[in-house]
Amino acid sequence: MSGLPIESSYSREPSRPISDAERDEFTTRLNSAYERGDIPVETYQQTMDSLYAARTVGELVPLTAVLPARYRTTDPAGSGSEVELKPGEVNVPVTRPDTHSKLVRLVLGSAAAIVVIVILLVIFGVIF
C-alpha cells in the first residue's frame, strides 16, 4: 500500500515531472521518518537515491511505501492546526474551558425575555 490518498496527484498524474517543492517535501518526510527511527539507514539511503533518480511523480508512488502513513486531522478545538499522527495513534482532543456557552446562554435568555415582554405588552395594549 502506498499510503497515498486517492486524490493524490502522484496517482492521478503519474507522468507529470516532479517539482522541486514535491521533491523537497518528500525529502523532509523521509528525513523525519529516519530521525524518528521509523526506517533503517539502508532503506533511507536506497529511498533517497531513488527519490533523486526519479523524474516523474509516478516513480514516487512505490517510494511512499517506506514512509509511515501520514494522517491529518484538524485540531478538535477548531484552531485549524494540523496534527500528524503515526499509524495506531489516536487524536486526543484538547480540552479547553467552555467560556462561550455561558455568554451565549445569557444573551439568548435575555433576548427571549425581551421578546416575551414585548408580546405581553402588545397583548395588553400598552404598545400599539
Rank of each mutant, 00 (worst) to 15 (best):
G80Y: 04
E84I: 15
R70I: 12
V107Q: 13
P14Y: 04
P5N: 09
R70D: 08
A33W: 05
Y52K: 09
L106S: 14
L121H: 06
A111C: 13
D38Q: 11
G80F: 02
P97R: 14
R12N: 07
F124T: 14
P40T: 00
H100R: 15
L103A: 13
L67P: 03
F26I: 04
S8E: 00
L108H: 11
D20M: 05
V90G: 00
G88Y: 05
N91H: 13
M48C: 11
T27W: 06
S32Y: 05
G88K: 01
G78D: 02
I117K: 02
Q46S: 11
P5S: 08
L103E: 14
E13G: 00
V116A: 15
Q45G: 01
P5L: 07
P68E: 00
K86S: 13
T28G: 05
P87G: 03
G125L: 07
E25S: 09
M1S: 12
V122Q: 13
L106R: 14
L103N: 09
R70H: 08
T43C: 02
E84P: 00
Y10K: 08
L67Q: 02
T73K: 11
P40H: 07
R16Y: 05
V94W: 08
L30W: 02
Y34A: 10
T99H: 10
L63C: 04
T27A: 10
T73V: 12
L121I: 04
P68R: 13
R105A: 14
S9I: 11
V90A: 08
V115Q: 07
T99C: 04
A111S: 15
S11N: 06
E22R: 03
A77M: 10
A113R: 14
G37M: 03
S81M: 09
V104K: 15
V66T: 14
P68S: 06
S79V: 04
A33G: 04
P93G: 04
P40S: 02
E89G: 03
S32M: 06
P14S: 05
G78N: 05
E82A: 10
T95W: 12
S101D: 09
L30I: 03
T64Q: 09
I123R: 15
L67M: 03
Q46C: 02
V92R: 14
V126Q: 12
E59G: 04
A65W: 00
T64V: 03
E22T: 08
R72K: 10
V83D: 03
S9P: 06
R29H: 08
R12V: 06
E35F: 01
V57I: 15
E35L: 09
L51A: 01
E13N: 11
L4P: 03
M1G: 13
E25K: 10
P68L: 01
F124L: 14
V104Y: 14
T27E: 09
I18D: 01
